[in-house]
Design a protein around this nucleic acid. Structure first.
Lengths: 220, 220
DNA sequence: TCTGCACAACTTCTCAGACAAGTAGCGCGG
DNA sequence: CCGCGCTACTTGTCTGAGAAGTTGTGCAGA
C-alpha cells in the first residue's frame, strides 16, 4: 500500500508545478500559462489550479497580478525553519533544544525577575495538575519550559525555542503515546528542581538539571 | 490615497485570519470554524476563504484534513531569521552563539571523524596565518568555528550557526576595528586549545573552552 | 452494562459556470 | 511618430452542486 491518506489534488498540482519550475520550464520572473490553460494540462479544474497557486504563493514561489498573470518569484521554496525542522531528525531537534535551554536556564537563574519566577512556579503547578490527557500535559510542559526561556531575557533565544516548539511538541506527544506513562513523579520532580535552582539564582545547577532532564527525551 | 494596488480579498481574508490566530482566538492545534461559517463572517465567498486558507497553509500556519476541518499548526508565520537577527542586540546574538557552539563543541569532541579533525586543524592554521587584514581574519575565524560545528554531526545546529554568521561577522569586524588589536596570541591559543580538546575526545573541556572564548566577544 | 456497528451530520475537496475587474497589446486616427 | 481607445486575455470572486472523508451518536445485541 502506497498511502493511507489521500493527497488532495490541489497539493498534487502544487507539487507538479513546483517540479516544473525547478526544472527551469519557467525562468525566474516569467509568466506561467493562464489558469484556464494550466487546468486541463494538469487534469484539474480551474479552482483547484488556483488553490495550488495560492499555496505556492504562500511559500513565496509564485505571485499573481490580476489581469496580468502568474509570475515566478523564486525557483525553489525558501528553506525556512518550518521546513528544515519538519525534515530534521527528532534527536537533532532535541540536541538543539538542549543547547538552547541549558544556556537559557543559566541565564534565567541570573536574570529572572520576581514576576517571572512566579510565572515559572505557576507553570510548574499547572503542569502537575495536567496529568491525565496527553495533549494538555505536553502543552503544560511546553509552557513551563517557555516560561524559563522567557526569563533568560534574550529575545533571540526565545525565538529559537519557539521555532522548535511545533516539531518537538508533535514528537513528545508521539513519545508519550508510545510509552504509555504520563508525567511521572520523577519527571515532575525534575521540573521542580529546575525551578528551585532558578529561584536560588543558581545558574550552574539549573543548567545541569535542564540538561539531564532533556536527555531523557532522547531516543536511541 | 491609501493604496495604488488593489489587494485581493483572499489576501485580506488571510491577513484577517492570521491576526485572529495571533490574538489567540484559536489555540495551537484547535479547529477553525468551517469554510461556510467563516465566509459570511469575513464577508467573502467560500472559494475566497479556501484560497486564504491555502495561502496560510503554504506559510505553515494552517493545515487541512478532508472531513475533519482546518487546524492551527503555528501561531505565527515563522519569522525570517535574517530580519530577526538584524534587529537583535549583538549581545543576544553572542549569547545564542554560546548556547549553540558550547553544545556543538561537546558533540564534536564525541563524534568528530579523523577527516573532520584534520579540517579543524587546517582551519586553525589558516586562522593563524591571517593576521593582517581584518576581513580575512574574521572569515578565517568563522571558518574555524564552522568546522567545529560541522563535526557535531547535527545539521540543525549547523543551520543555526550559519544563520548567525552574517550578523556576528559584521559585529566582529566592528569590534576588531574598535579594539585595534587583531588576532592576539592569547586568542589564537584559545582556538588551539579547543582543537586539542576535540582531538582528545574531551567534550567537557572543549565546551568549557568554547564558552570562555566566546565570552570575550561580549561587550558590557 | 458494555460492545460494536450503522448512520447521520458535518467537514473539506473538486468541478463548472458566470460575471467583475484589471492589464497589455494592437490598430487607428491625428 | 505619438497617443488614444478598444479588445482580447488575464486573474478575482461568487454560487451551486455533488463527491469523499471524519466524527460522534444512538441503537441493537451480547
Amino acid at each position: 500500500m502506497a498511502q493511507v491518506t489521500r493527497v488532495p489534488l490541489a497539493e498534487q498540482a502544487a507539487d507538479l508545478l513546483l517540479d516544473r519550475i525547478r526544472e527551469g520550464e519557467w525562468p525566474l520572473g516569467s509568466k506561467l500559462p493562464g489558469e484556464s490553460t494550466l487546468g486541463p494540462q494538469l487534469g484539474v479544474g480551474r479552482s483547484t489550479v488556483r488553490e495550488a497557486i495560492r499555496r505556492l504563493a504562500g511559500q513565496g514561489v509564485l505571485s499573481t497580478r490580476q489581469g496580468a498573470g502568474v509570475f515566478v518569484d523564486a525557483l525553489d521554496i525558501v528553506e525556512d525553519w518550518g521546513v528544515a525542522l519538519r525534515k530534521a531528525d527528532i534527536n537533532s531537534v532535541i540536541e538543539a533544544r538542549i543547547a538552547v535551554e541549558v544556556e537559557a536556564a543559566a541565564l534565567a537563574a541570573e536574570r529572572r525577575s520576581p514576576v517571572e519566577l512566579r510565572a515559572i512556579r505557576h507553570a510548574a503547578a499547572e503542569r502537575d495538575s495536567q496529568r491525565t490527557e496527553i495533549d494538555a500535559h505536553v502543552d503544560a510542559d511546553i509552557a513551563f519550559h517557555r516560561a524559563v526561556v522567557t526569563a533568560s531575557h534574550n529575545p533571540l533565544i526565545v525565538d529559537l525555542f519557539d521555532s522548535f516548539t511545533p516539531r518537538s511538541r508533535q514528537a513528545m506527544i508521539e513519545l508519550l503515546r508510545l510509552r504509555g506513562t504520563l508525567g511521572s513523579d520523577v519527571d515532575q520532580h525534575a521540573h521542580t528542581a529546575i525551578l528551585e535552582a532558578i529561584a536560588d539564582h543558581d545558574g550552574q545547577t539549573a543548567s545541569a538539571l535542564a540538561r539531564t532532564h532533556l536527555l531523557t527525551l532522547k531516543m536511541e
